[in-house]
Design a binder for these strands. Structure first.
Lengths: 395, 395
DNA sequence: AGGATTAATTTCCGCTGTCAATAAAAGAAG
DNA sequence: CTTCTTTTATTGACAGCGGAAATTAATCCT
């Protein structure tokens, strides 16, 4: 995270305070006693930790009039005051930037698309600045300040340093994006890999809440994977992890741009599906919309392509499950528009290839609008804001 | 870990003490200042933490006469007093138990093999008791007490509960091994999966020292994998992880006992190699020794089998590297006897299938005598002893 | 009005690790 | 041979965090 100006800071001085806040953020309204239990603290600690947070307006206590027990002093459930702070999340793709304005609870308030003429850093930065400007003026009407900007980019991103080390899609190398964006927008900036950002959103606000080991698999132009192990998102020693897209599922399969054959992505990625449907049907197939339409119209060749894609994805997920034994795998991404065409095959292939207890892993599909990518970026900004001065416990 | 008697406990009451001890254990002799830096503590904290450990004889300070700087007060490097305590590690296989007596530094002092008539829990427990008895009498001559027993078993093991949930090799289900072994031996017992145990040994005493993300891949009867992510061994939500053996590398490959085709194990496992060499040469091949001999004699068919095995292993490792981005992969196991026959293919296949920065992962081969499996078990016992009352930070 | 019951808070206390100052153990310099 | 310099280790005062137990608060029940 980078920031120049003296930005508003989060008044969670102690580990316990940060812990409690995160717990309440993820687990909805909680009484102090429940929060204490969940965070592994004493009630007294919660009371102390919570006071400055309430005073600063980040937490509120609302005696929930309904649903109260018949006996004893009624509880004052704590909840995060979403409207207290706003964040901007932006996802940069090859041809556009998707931006969202979210509140502290990562609820999307406003979303915007900005087309990109060229994906070079200069143009992206200009578009990003305009986008942020736009969203910040909108934010004025909401009565809260924008406290951070998260940017999600595909590829090798060093979140700690705030730099994009290498993004094949954008053809960037060693771009200090956080620093640049910070100087143009004046906001504290967090830069992270797009799939990891989405994983953070799921971990704090989605289907990964409360789980210490799970995976997010995204299906779309590429096949990506975000991993949470021991309660933390895996970044890998070299900043890259979760490359499920290039797991080989069939050495005799179609060639992949990565140089191998039969990668998941070469079978189930958008481009691969379009190509395969075209070859199978002999018809004109311009994009995944066309491919999908053909399959939905019942064209056998197209359906088979999706079935094979599902099997490839299922086998890729089984590989993750076999290696890491996650509690849950969340399948998501635009590719899920074809959900009905390959969900069964995913499940079957997973079941066949998952070994022993790994098969007990809960595989969920979670269709997700494209703006969720930008929401993931906002989630990283929220995370950075809350943990502003926290250190990672190395070791 | 299970223990009935009041056993000797480790005087590291505080987190810092445990931290410092572990640091010195892994990083050899260290001055207090170096230890403080490495453990992220103040020198004062090290002094305080270290005192009871020295008094109890677990640490010693030896002014290293040689190699001292020319100026200033000479340092008193701290080192672990290996001879202070002894541990027993045992690896249970289908037909024998390998046991080792190690010191606190996990140096093997004595090793023993005990044949097993049948792998049912009764027989194993009897053999284990005899083995422990034997090693404990040997231990008397070494002037230190045996403070723990570690047992390594393949399959699904719940270390926390001390039970073997399911071991296909031994055909065990839900055997409370720690409890049983504790009552027969009177020692505190730690039970863990064999590959994870080996991984712990590498993490604390081997090629994984100082790394927060690495993998151990074992090649032998099966192909196993132990993972360390965020500095902790991965156990998986359901107690199973690291099943690299059943990663599919060739859907058209030979069938595997797991029900799929072309698993790494079905190509590079001992049984697969023996079968394939037999088929390729038409000769009598009883075991891996025969297969190895043929290959070393230059029989083309046999050499090809090993080459294919190497490629399969390399691809499996690449999958791990792509998913987790480890800093290092340590290849080990009895199968490395064929190291010269497939090391090149492992490297080539890894290089071809590793994507982007994942290729920067350092792949090492580390031939390891079979008794190292038992040493891994001892390492888990040492770990349990040192962290006797520590809790895992869930979340 | 006075229990009964559950929630939250307060007060006090112990413990851990840091800070800054100090002691220790040498060689170097005069 | 004393004193200075340099580096390592220790000491003692101190601050902060979180916990235990007692206390207060808020409500319903009798």
């Amino acid at each position: 995270m980078h920031s120049t100006r003296r930005a508003e800071t989060f008044p969670a001085n102690t580990p316990a305070a940060s812990q409690v806040f995160t717990t309440v953020l993820s687990h909805g309204p909680l009484t102090r006693l429940e929060a204490a239990r969940r965070a592994g603290l004493s009630p007294a600690a919660v009371t102390k930790a919570v006071r400055p947070l309430i005073e600063a307006g980040y937490l509120t206590e609302d005696a929930d009039a309904e649903a109260r027990p018949t006996l004893g002093r009624p509880a004052n459930p704590l909840r995060v005051n979403g409207g207290r702070a706003l964040f901007i999340g932006a996802k940069v793709t090859g041809d556009e930037i998707i931006g969202v304005l979210t509140d502290l609870c990562c609820q999307v308030r406003i979303s915007r698309h900005v087309p990109l003429s060229a994906p070079d850093p200069r143009a992206v930065l200009a578009a990003l600045a305009a986008l942020v400007q736009d969203l910040m003026t909108e934010a004025h009407g909401l009565g809260a300040g924008v406290l951070g900007l998260g940017v999600a980019v595909s590829g090798d991103v060093d979140r700690g340093a705030g730099t994009v080390r290498y993004s094949p899609f954008l053809e960037w190398r060693d771009v200090p994006l956080a620093e640049l964006a910070c100087t143009t927008t004046g906001l504290p900036v967090t830069v992270d890999n797009d799939v990891r950002a989405l994983t953070v959103a799921e971990q704090w606000f989605g289907a990964g809440v409360g789980l210490s080991d799970f995976a997010v698999v995204t299906v779309g132009a590429g096949i990506g994977c975000g991993l949470v192990v021991h309660g933390r998102v895996v970044a890998g020693a070299h900043g890259v992890a979760g490359e499920i897209g290039h797991v080989t599922v069939d050495p005799a399969g179609p060639p992949c741009h990565c140089g191998n054959r039969g990668c998941v992505e070469a079978i189930a990625g958008d481009a691969a599906i379009v190509r395969q449907v075209r070859e199978a049907t002999g018809l004109t197939v311009a994009d995944t919309g066309d491919a999908l339409a053909l399959a939905h119209r019942g064209v056998a060749g197209a359906r088979e392509v999706y079935a094979r894609a599902g099997a490839a994805i299922g086998r890729g997920i089984a590989t993750v499950a076999n290696l890491l034994g996650p509690e849950r795998v969340i399948i998501s991404g635009e590719g899920l528009a074809a959900h009905d065409l390959f969900a069964e095959q995913i499940r079957d292939a997973f079941g066949a290839a998952a070994f022993g207890s790994a098969a007990r892993c809960d595989v969920q599909t979670r269709p997700l609008p494209f703006e969720q990518w930008a929401r993931g970026a906002a989630a990283t900004a929220i995370q950075s804001f809350i943990r502003a001065d926290e250190q990672r416990p190395g070791r």
